[in-house]
Design a protein around this nucleic acid. Structure first.
Length: 160
DNA sequence: GCCAACGTTGGC
DNA sequence: GCCAACGTTGGC
């Protein structure tokens, strides 16, 4: 039986890497995650084909701006080996790279970005992880019904 | 710019 | 193993 597709949310600061950057690049390695829980999601739980809500954080307004797809299995984050990278980690070695990532591929930019305020205002999204106070995981799972609802909000019918 | 919440580090 | 101090995240 095929593995069930999972849904995720990945945060990026648009000043660092935005949905437009992903659209331009087509796909990218999700570099720089230096949190074990977030790494574990990428390393242990993500599968090729999983769908991702692309979230802009630390910007005005924060929110989900588009969709992406996981397009690789986990592999070492090479930036950990690069002494000139902001993501350098002296403890990372080729035997034990410590940090791993997946590649993600651009799917779409929402015609209607779903701001954090919109997410909070929608009763169907109650309990969504990203809305929890103090939640700062940059890679986090999303429940299927939450995922579908956000996609609806981002692609409104009968508008535009 | 502020600051609450969180994760990590390191002394003990 | 505890926990205070510190650095970071990220909404506001």
């Amino acid at each position: 039986m095929a593995a069930k597709r999972r849904y995720w949310l990945m945060k990026s600061e648009p000043d660092v890497y935005s949905i437009d950057d992903l659209q331009r690049d087509g796909s990218t390695s999700w570099e720089g995650v230096r949190n074990y829980q977030a790494r574990n999601f990428m390393r242990d739980d993500m599968r090729e084909g999983d769908l991702v809500l692309f979230y802009h954080s630390n910007t005005k307004p924060p929110g989900v701006v588009g969709l992406a797809r996981v397009c690789s299995s986990a592999h070492p984050d090479e930036t950990a080996f690069d002494a000139n990278s902001p993501y350098y980690d002296a403890k990372a070695t080729s035997e034990n790279p410590i940090w791993q990532l997946v590649d993600v591929q651009f799917i779409s930019k929402f015609p209607h970005p779903v701001g954090r305020e919109d997410l909070k205002a929608d009763s169907a999204l109650e309990g969504m992880l990203v809305l929890k106070k103090g939640m700062r995981l940059s890679v986090q799972p999303v429940e299927p019904h939450h995922f579908e609802r956000v996609v609806e909000l981002g692609n409104p019918r009968g508008k535009n």
